[in-house]
Amino acid sequence: MNDSPVLRVRNLTRRFAAGVVLKSLDLTIERGEFVALLGRSGSGKTTLLRTLAGLDEVSEGDVQVSPESTVVYQEPRLFPWKRVWHNVALGVRTPDARRRAEAALGEVELAHRLNAWPLTLSGGEAQRVALARALIREPELLLLDEPFASLDALTRTRMQGLVGDLWARHRPAVLLVTHDIDEALLLADRVLVLSEGRLEADLRVDLPRPRDDGETRFVHLRRTLRTALGVTDKQAIAA
């Protein structure tokens, strides 16, 4: 095992016809590091994630991403014509793929849904299958694109706990794209704020886990991040 970062971005610029979305961005993620990327909609976080996932071309700058990386999207994106275990095992080219898929599904507490069809799953279940599908690939880097955004509040809290546990157990590096400040502070070692194509803040979160969102330092960090995002307390309540 080497110690080189799993992700290194230098001077990444991304232009669309409408303007510059990413402006000479630098970013490094070390092995096993949990990084959250905050940004308002339109800040370029989706563009950045798509570039890191290899879905968009890099035209300006240098991007090096570990080949052992995978993505969990906001929607589960399961293949509806494959049973749950097959969705997880798809593309796993070892003879014990099925057994590993079952183990991965066990880890996300879906051992009882192995043979279900994806369209019969609830939103939370489907997203857990998507997590298992990422997990089975033993990624060095896990890219999470607002994976909890379309879940209800209760399910979201449980999913956050699950992701925290899985990360603690398998230790992939994680880049979690989110617009939820508390989610970022609950899970991440480092929180980045992307604003108008630049990283405006890079905050270390040295709080012991599991974290308490009422604790003084947590509250302080939340306030700092709100300021960085340009959200006042009043706006936050209104939202």
Partner: peptide, 10 residues
């Protein structure tokens, strides 16, 4: 979106 998923799943 499914084609993208297939790509990122390798």
């Amino acid at each position: 979106k499914l084609l993208e998923a297939a790509r990122t799943l390798g």
